[in-house]
Simulated scan of single mutants.
Amino acid sequence: MDTHNHLLLLVPLLLLINMATFCFGDLRKDFEITWGNGRAHILDNGKLLTLSLDKASGSGFQSKREYLFGKIDMQLKLVPGNSAGTVTAYYLSSKGSAWDEIDFEFLGNLSGDPYILHTNVFSHGKGNREQQFYLWFDPTADFHSYSILWNPKHIVFYVDEIPIRVFKNLESKGVPFPNKQPMRIHSSLWNADDWATRGGLIKTDWTKAPFTASYRNFKVTAAAAASTAARGSGRTSEELDARSENRLKWVQKKYMIYNYCTDTKRFPHGFPPEC
């Protein structure tokens, strides 16, 4: 094959690679501080973002662009020490009264006790699909990756590339699935001591403030589109392989502490159809 033909094959491949993965090294280009009155900062030439909470206010940020399908990766280091009463929320969300949302929420706890990782999926404004987990490591000692894979078939929650939850598209059974509304990435650090730690029994110790969570190494696997939303490609169409399925079962057996699909008190007359 001559050089010309080699180039003809190479150009589409390079375009595909370029569309499939955007790796953002400068958080300033991709996120904006939305609230907090100086409590959120983008540092180290855009490589680090921090949110802080004190008695007066928390803080938050959001992505500058919207996404429709993709794999969203971010490394977080959570509030260390006595974080009781605090919540670090990291999620995708659309706008309007019939919004879609895909949630990671990290519920703080007393020093030495494990964080609770709370997950939820909203479709057309309806949530109530909570699953909760303990983590198998200290999420305050170092950065760990938290990822959302969102495609037309399913939503997969990952921790350090280990799947912990799958929410499948079961529109065929009448279950709404988020697949039409583009979403922004959001994160916030806020006080929720009326419910976050042991149902609100443990209150925030403001002598430990300010509380700080840190973010780095954002990456999204998605294809650029002409509109404001980026439509996913590449890894977004993958199914879980056998190894991932086994890891999912391991996490759910050892570390899941609440599953709405087994809550008979909440659903005495039968579980939702997706269960």
Rank of each mutant, 00 (worst) to 15 (best):
S52K: 11
S52A: 15
D54H: 04
K55P: 02
A56Y: 03
S57V: 03
S57N: 15
G58N: 12
S59T: 06
F61G: 00
K64A: 07
K64H: 06
R65L: 06
R65T: 12
R65I: 11
E66W: 02
Y67L: 11
Y67K: 07
Y67S: 12
L68I: 10
F69H: 09
F69M: 07
K71R: 15
I72T: 11
I72F: 14
M74S: 09
Q75M: 10
L76A: 12
K77S: 10
K77I: 09
P80G: 07
P80K: 06
G81K: 05
G81S: 07
N82F: 01
N82Y: 01
N82Q: 07
A84E: 00
A84H: 00
T86N: 05
V87G: 05
Y90P: 00
Y91V: 02
L92E: 00
S93R: 15
S93Q: 15
S93D: 01
K95V: 10
S97I: 12
A98S: 14
A98N: 14
W99M: 13
D100V: 10
I102K: 02
D103S: 10
F104L: 04
E105H: 09
F106L: 11
F106V: 08
L107A: 06
L107I: 05
G108Y: 01
G108L: 04
L110Q: 14
G112V: 10
D113G: 02
D113Y: 15
D113E: 14
Y115H: 08
Y115L: 04
Y115S: 04
I116R: 02
I116L: 14
L117D: 02
L117K: 03
T119R: 06
V121N: 00
H124N: 14
H124Q: 14
H124C: 05
K126F: 11
G127I: 10
N128C: 03
R129I: 08
R129A: 09
R129E: 03
R129F: 08
Q131W: 01
Q131K: 14
Q132T: 10
Q132M: 13
F133V: 01
Y134G: 00
L135M: 14
L135R: 04
F137P: 04
F137A: 05
D138H: 11
P139A: 02
T140A: 15
D142K: 09
F143H: 03
H144V: 06
S145R: 10
S145V: 02
Y146V: 04
S147M: 05
S147P: 15
S147T: 11
S147I: 05
S147V: 07
I148W: 01
L149R: 06
L149D: 00
W150P: 09
N151E: 05
P152A: 10
K153A: 14
H154D: 13
I155M: 06
F157D: 01
F157H: 12
V159W: 04
V159Y: 03
V159Q: 04
V159E: 07
D160V: 06
E161Y: 14
E161H: 13
P163E: 03
I164Q: 04
I164S: 03
I164F: 13
V166R: 03
V166S: 06
V166N: 04
V166H: 02
V166P: 08
F167T: 01
F167Q: 00
F167N: 00
K168N: 13
N169I: 11
N169G: 09
L170I: 03
S172E: 13
G174W: 15
F177C: 09
F177S: 04
P178R: 14
P178D: 10
P178V: 14
N179A: 12
K180E: 12
P182H: 09
M183A: 06
R184D: 01
